[in-house]
């Protein structure tokens, strides 16, 4: 070993670099955690992509219960709830339910719903063909809306799971981040004055 590679100054620099690297590692945990959650379905994260109906192999006779819940995040002036609390569905069959939302504020408020499935490891077996959570929802003051969710349960769902809960949390989208789809401008607004997805 040469004297230079052994000097305290050099070791100090290397160890400081290690410390700075570990500081960076803390931030690297953020994307790592995202990936980890997506792979494992941790926290009931579901895919943000619409599933295609063509993916269904067959409709089986097995039935499971789907429970629906809804929460409104703090600062969000909407009333938001499922129109039915639970459904008995056949595995593989496409079903539709609706969530009701009403804007209790006087001005337009944009919301974004984020889904979560419990138990967490069942998240990857609940496929949404169509969902109001795929886009932002815009509601004028006092307007109300029924928003559909079209979904099916994957036939590969583990045998031990008989009940799934699909929960949505409705967040208020800050005005700066509101995305008005181009289609909304050309599509006729309905009598409540909002874009119908």
């Amino acid at each position: 070993m040469s004297k230079r590679s052994n000097s305290p100054g050099r070791q100090f620099a290397l160890l400081s670099l290690l410390a700075v690297g570990m500081f960076g590692f803390a931030f690297a945990l953020v994307p790592l955690y995202e990936i980890f959650c997506e792979i494992t379905g941790l926290n009931g994260r579901t895919s943000g992509e619409a599933a295609s109906v063509a993916q269904i192999a067959e409709i089986s006779d097995r039935e499971v219960t789907i429970q629906f819940t809804a929460q409104v995040f703090r600062g969000m002036p909407w009333e938001f709830r499922p129109t039915e609390n639970q459904m008995r569905v056949r595995v593989g069959e496409v079903n539709t339910t609706e969530y009701y939302a009403r804007n209790r504020a006087s001005g337009m408020v944009t919301g974004q719903a984020v889904p979560s499935v419990s138990p967490g490891h069942a998240a990857q077996y609940l496929h949404k063909v169509e969902c109001f959570c795929f886009t932002q929802q815009h509601l004028e003051g006092d307007a109300e809306i029924d928003m559909p969710v079209q979904f099916y349960v994957d036939p590969d769902l583990p045998e031990d799971i008989g009940t799934l809960s699909l929960s949505y949390t409705m967040y208020r989208v800050p005005d700066a981040e509101v995305v008005v789809p181009e289609a909304a401008a050309s599509m006729p607004a309905d009598h409540e004055g909002h874009y119908q997805p």
């Binding site: 290690l18 700075v20 570990m22 500081f23 803390a26």
Partner: peptide, 14 residues
Amino acid sequence: LIMAMPVLAGAVTM
């Protein structure tokens, strides 16, 4: 300490 304390610093920075 060198491995763990910077991660704490990262957490409080976030």
